[in-house]
Structure formats: structure tokens, C-alpha cells
């Protein structure tokens, strides 16, 4: 019964969105759908946050393994909305917490990328074969072409780097994108027509 209901809801909304894209005469209903998309999203966000809070509160109250991390999560989850009650302007506590805690913490995680790129490059760019060697040379040219030190080493690195990005890279990416585009259209049609049922349960 639920499966059937999900199928009919998916089909009707899928066909409606398709119809309004090609024949835009149902603007009012379309705008309503856009509004409802936001309402549904925010409701699920609320459910997600409450579930997350409860899960971590349970861990803290039972002192199960990793409860310390859970305590930090719960503290953060409470502190930011409470601080926001007193305003979100540039002189507010909320903004101070955002600027001095959230921004540095997130930037730190992002900056890990530089370290992981280094270790992955150290491991991955081995000239084991001719294609691997070409990959290595291309990577070196692009990296040197994007920074001032490359221009100092050889004046034309930026042009070489641009040519690599504009020609072989774009060509390969377009090939993959065409496949992805076709795959996306076919998958969405499968979803609308109820063929792809994986997202609401495994078919047996």
C-alpha cells in the first residue's frame, strides 16, 4: 500500500514538473511546488537535528563510548541557536562564535586537503608506464602554470597549463558529462515511472 502511494506521488509530481517545464502555463501551481519544496526541506532538517541531538544526549546520559564527543556536539547544538536569540549582527555573540570558532575549525579541516594532496601525489604520481608518465608531466605543468614560481622557471608555463586545461581536459570531461547527462535523464525517467525503486526499498 505504502509502496503504491509513493509510486503515485512520485509519478504525479514528476509528470507535473516535466509538463510545466515544456508548457509554462501553470506558473501559480509551479510556484506553490517551489514553496513546498522549501517547507519539506526545512521540516526534515528540523527532524534531522532533533534526532541528532537525542542520539548524542542518549550517549552522554549512558556514558557510552565516545560520550565526550557527544557532549561537545550537544553543547554546540545548543550554544549557537541560544546565542542567535541575542542577534546575529557583527557585534553579536553569535557572530563572535561563528568567526572565532566555526570558521577556523572548518578552515582547518579544509586545509587538510593540502596535506592529503601531498601524500596522494607522492603515492599516486608514479611513472610506472608511458600514460602514467604523461599524467605526471601534465600535472607538473598545470601546477607550475598556476603559480608565480612557474612563470619564473619558464615564461610559457601558464600558456601550456591553459592549453592542457582547455583542450584535453575539457574534451575528456565533456565525454564523461555527456554520459552523466544521459544517465541522469534515464535515471530520472526510471524514478518517475517507478522502475528504479531502489530509493524506497530493495526489490526482491
Amino acid at each position: 500500500m505504502t509502496r503504491r502511494l509513493v509510486f503515485w506521488i512520485t509519478l504525479s509530481f514528476g509528470v507535473f514538473m516535466l509538463f510545466q517545464f515544456f508548457i509554462p502555463v501553470v506558473g501559480g501551481a509551479y510556484r506553490k511546488v517551489l514553496d513546498w519544496m522549501q517547507v519539506i526541506y526545512l521540516s526534515s532538517l528540523l527532524v534531522g537535528v532533533i534526532a541528532l541531538g537525542l542520539q548524542h544526549l542518549r550517549k552522554v546520559s549512558t556514558l557510552s563510548s565516545g560520550w565526550g564527543y557527544s557532549l561537545v556536539t550537544v553543547a554546540g547544538l545548543v550554544a549557537m541557536p541560544v546565542a542567535a536569540f541575542w542577534g546575529t549582527g557583527e557585534s553579536s555573540v553569535f557572530f563572535w562564535l561563528f568567526n572565532n570558532m566555526q570558521v577556523p575549525m572548518q578552515s582547518t579541516v579544509f586545509s587538510l586537503l593540502a596535506f592529503f594532496v601531498a601524500s596522494a601525489a607522492f603515492r599516486g604520481f608514479r611513472a610506472r608506464s608511458l600514460p602514467a608518465f604523461l599524467l605526471l608531466v601534465s600535472a607538473a605543468i598545470v601546477m607550475l602554470g598556476r603559480v608565480p614560481i612557474g612563470t619564473k622557471l619558464y615564461f610559457d608555463f601558464p600558456a601550456w597549463s591553459q592549453a592542457l586545461l582547455d583542450i584535453p581536459s575539457v574534451a575528456a570531461r565533456r565525454g564523461i558529462l555527456i554520459g552523466i547527462g544521459l544517465g541522469s535523464v534515464a535515471t530520472s525517467l526510471r524514478v518517475i515511472l517507478g522502475i528504479e525503486r531502489g530509493f524506497f526499498g530493495r526489490k526482491v
Partner: peptide
């Protein structure tokens, strides 16, 4: 900030070269 990026790229390139030298 571009100097920092320059140096980081240079170091990564050196690491790649070092990795290849060790491999060979």
C-alpha cells in the same frame, strides 16, 4: 597569499619527484 601557494606547489612537485626517484 600567492607566495605560499607557489611554495606549496613546488614542494608537492618535489615530493612527486622524490616518490618517483624512490620508486625507480
Amino acid at each position: 597569499s600567492m607566495d605560499a601557494q607557489s611554495m606549496a606547489h613546488a614542494v608537492i612537485l618535489l615530493l612527486i619527484l622524490g616518490g618517483n626517484a624512490a620508486y625507480w
